[in-house]
Amino acid sequence: MADEKIPRRDAINYLLGAGIGALGAATLYPIARYIIPPPASGSGTSSVSAGKVGELKPNEGKIFKFGNAPGILILKPGGDPASALSYAAFTAVCTHLNCTVQYRTDIKEIWCACHNGHFDLNGKVISGPPPEALREFRVAIKGDEIFVSSEEA
């Protein structure tokens, strides 16, 4: 290393290049960080009220807001509206291309209209293009309020 001679011009060019590079990085880094937003305060949502007991009749579903994304709450056919076990809740965001799914009372399935994706009441794919099951939420009843939370059910 000691006997390796660097011509003066090369050394200066190298320092100049490194200086410009450092300046560029110091300019771009804050910009790159700036354009990706910080985690939103609402996006860590873990539990929301999805509705009231009695709002849904057996074999009915509704969409509720889970943070900034839609969720779907279903009172299973023949289920008791007062028992948390009668409900099923999932993200309503289809695993295929992100359309919002809905509950079809006629076929008792969750259905995505975008490309005809069908899910059963456990969120599993029955048919259509969705590659995986809908993420399930846990349902709890406190008083007459139905709470849905994102811990795995």
Partner: peptide, 10 residues
Amino acid sequence: DILKPAPPHV
């Protein structure tokens, strides 16, 4: 409206 499901033929 985030609470509306996707209609068919989107």
